[in-house]
Write a protein that binds this DNA or RNA. Sequence first.
DNA 1: GTCTATATTTGGATAGAC
DNA 2: GTCTATCCAAATATAGAC
Lengths: 186, 186
Amino acid sequence: MRRGESRGTILKAARAEFAERGYAGARVARIAERAGLNKQLIYYYFHSKAGLHAAATAATDQHPDGPGAAAASESAPGAVRAAIGRLLSSLENRPEFVALLVDRFPSPDARVQARAWITQAAADVGAAISRGQGMGYFRDEVDPDGMAQQAIVLCAGYLALRDHLSMETGGWERGVSETLLRAATW
Amino acid sequence: MRRGESRGTILKAARAEFAERGYAGARVARIAERAGLNKQLIYYYFHSKAGLHAAATAATDQHPDGPGAAAASESAPGAVRAAIGRLLSSLENRPEFVALLVDRFPSPDARVQARAWITQAAADVGAAISRGQGMGYFRDEVDPDGMAQQAIVLCAGYLALRDHLSMETGGWERGVSETLLRAATW
DNA sequence: GTCTATATTTGGATAGAC
DNA sequence: GTCTATCCAAATATAGAC
């Protein structure tokens, strides 16, 4: 299937551009250039810059962020570690979505999308912590949702501030897991 | 002193605009409107949009972020709590600076400014942790700088993602302090 | 579907009166 | 110092050939 190949190329270029510059800073002409294709083609496929952005930030299904992703058989700390790993890799593959998360003026659609992702991600991490509490591994006073939100902020915030920080993603992930696990454990 | 009153009004409006929309999304005309003043006045005072942004994001001296701000007499956890409080309040008063921190395409100047702030803030928090280690209060394996960076990401990231989160600033600050202290303590 | 123009609008910046 | 009136470059979007 050759049909839609250009469409995909444009989307890929658009994701990179929106990730780097944000919606307002992104340039349609530059996206066309990055894609090695004509600018008009973007309007042909996506009608407008806003339409392109909506298509570019729409979830691509390849990210198992939901609570269902956790294996019930894992150890309590293993489950938390895995949930944090999912969080980071999910966002790392979608830098344009990180840009959307920290955008103060997203479209209503984008706002809904951001909220939905956060709700889902918080449920994922929160479930791992709750389960650990049930197993007597984590302290009961720990608020699973509050800690899940910290995990989200640690991951999304890291990717947003990455340029200014000195740590690699792997090291960051280990550090975050360790901090949250130690904080939750007796 | 009436002189410079308009200048201040413009700066205030500019901070709000840059905080909401980021540099690329901000509009000079809108800043003038917010300030209730003429657009040309902005160019009279600040020469250009970039100049206005530089002036608007420049530190306003009222934020004691440096390591020197810590009182040597405090208890180890108290010092960490205080450092986190400084972090948050420093950023909370400067939303336009938070926007700059998460901006992927800042000007070279802004980049330097962001790095400098982070270095300073990390030193502040890191010093409190190091001191606590010296007093035998925190575990020696804890990396003060790594934990300081987590504190920064937790504070800056919270303010950047705030719209999508359910926690108030006070509750967030307490949660962050508790998590980091528990993680650092024996 | 893909290209080369070209139109239209927006937004940063200047000129010049008061 | 503050305003009104423009200018001009950049950026979104459209027309229409191939």
